[in-house]
Amino acid sequence: MKNTRIVLLRHGQSVWNKENRFTGWANVSLSELGENEARNAGIKLKENGFNFNFCYTSMLDRAIKTSNLALEQLDSLWIPVEHDWQLNERHYGDLQGLNKAETAEEFGDEQVHIWRRSYDIEPPQVSEDSSFYPGNDRRYQELQHSQLPHGESLKDTYDRVIPFWNENIVPNVEQGSDILIAAHGNSLRALIKYLDNIPDDKITELEIPTGAPLVYEFNEQMKPVKSYYL
C-alpha cells in the first residue's frame, strides 16, 4: 500500500508580508508575487503527479486564494474544500497592522523578538472595540466568546490547530485521501511541531517559505515517514 501524502502550503506572499507588517487574522490580499507563488506551487504539484481528494484552508483570503490558484493548475477546483478558523494564522493582537521595524524602534528589538519568537508569550491584547477583534468580523459570528482570541502565542495557536488535525483531518487521511492544507506560517509551524515532535524552544526557529509545497508521507499508523519540499 502506498504512503498517504499530505501537502502543507503556506500562502503566497501577502501585501502585508511585502510591507513587513504583523498580519495575524487581518484579512489582507496576496501580492502579485504571492499570486505567482501560488500558481507555481500548483505547477510543481502537477509535475509531481499530485491529485488531491480534499483541501483544508483557513478563513482568510490569502490562504483561500492560494489554494484556489494552486488547485486551478491541477484542474481540481471542483474538489471539496473546508474553511476553518482553527487553521488561521496566529492572532497578533494589538500588533496587527504595525510595521515590524517601526515596532522594534518603539518597544525595542528584544521585546519584539520575545513577542515574535517565544513559544508561550502572548502579544499585547487587542480591545473588543477594535476592527482587528474577531468578534467584529462576521466570519466568526458562530464562535463562542471564549474561542475568539485577543492575541495569541504560538502555544495558543498549537492548542487549536492540533485538536482540529486529530478530529477532522486525520480521519480523512486514514481513508486514503491525499490532502492539501493551505494555511499560514504559524498554524503550519504548530502542525509541523506536532508531526516532527519539535521541542518548544526549537520550533520558533523554523522558517516556512511562502508558496513552497511541503510534502509529508504517512504510513498506515499515521506516522510521518518522510517530509520534503518540492
Rank of each mutant, 00 (worst) to 15 (best):
Q144W: 10
H145Y: 12
Y158A: 03
V161E: 04
L154H: 06
E174M: 10
D156S: 05
W165N: 06
S146D: 14
Q175Y: 03
D156M: 00
G151W: 01
Y158H: 05
Q147A: 14
Q175L: 04
L143Q: 10
H150W: 06
W165A: 03
Q175D: 12
D156V: 01
Q144L: 15
N166G: 13
E152L: 10
L154N: 09
F164Q: 06
S146G: 11
N166C: 04
Y158C: 11
S146M: 09
E142K: 12
L143F: 11
S153Q: 00
H150C: 13
W165Y: 10
P149S: 09
N172L: 08
D156W: 00
I162M: 00
Q147Y: 12
V161D: 09
L143C: 10
R160Q: 04
P163Q: 09
D156H: 07
D156C: 09
Q144C: 13
N168H: 15
F164T: 01
D159A: 13
I162N: 08
H145R: 14
G151N: 11
Q144N: 14
F164I: 08
E167L: 08
Q175G: 06
E167Y: 14
V161A: 03
P163T: 15
L154P: 11
L148H: 00
E152T: 01
P171R: 06
S146W: 11
L148Y: 05
D159W: 07
D159K: 12
N172M: 01
D159T: 14
